[in-house]
Amino acid sequence: MANKQTYLGEFEHMVLLSIASLKDDAYGVTIRQHLKDSIDRDVTIGALYATTERLEKKGFIETQLGGATAERGGKAKRYMQVTASGAQALQDTKAQLDMMWQKLASAGGVL
């Protein structure tokens, strides 16, 4: 039986891709900005952190504190990195999406 946790939700997918794209500079503010700039998606900080908490529990990302600056009132940033299983989940999701699009195309397409 397939493990439900290995599947990525649509927003989880976007956030994970953002974290992967931002490499060593992925934290709340930059991820939000990346999502806004890339796909014009304006997400709230609360929704973003709720998702990253879920991704961390699933083992798809790991986080570490650092980068406290004056503009943040001396508060640390939570830097995020995609783990090996997170990268695998991204690959699997992409493969599944590609497969579904191919099947749609071979069926003549409806779009």
């Binding site: 908490e53 504190l65 600056t69 503009e71 640390a76």
Partner: peptide
Amino acid sequence: RLAEEVSGDVEEEFGE
């Protein structure tokens, strides 16, 4: 575990 980084993000975004 979330208070510092979330409030820091809000301060960074809205302080600017």
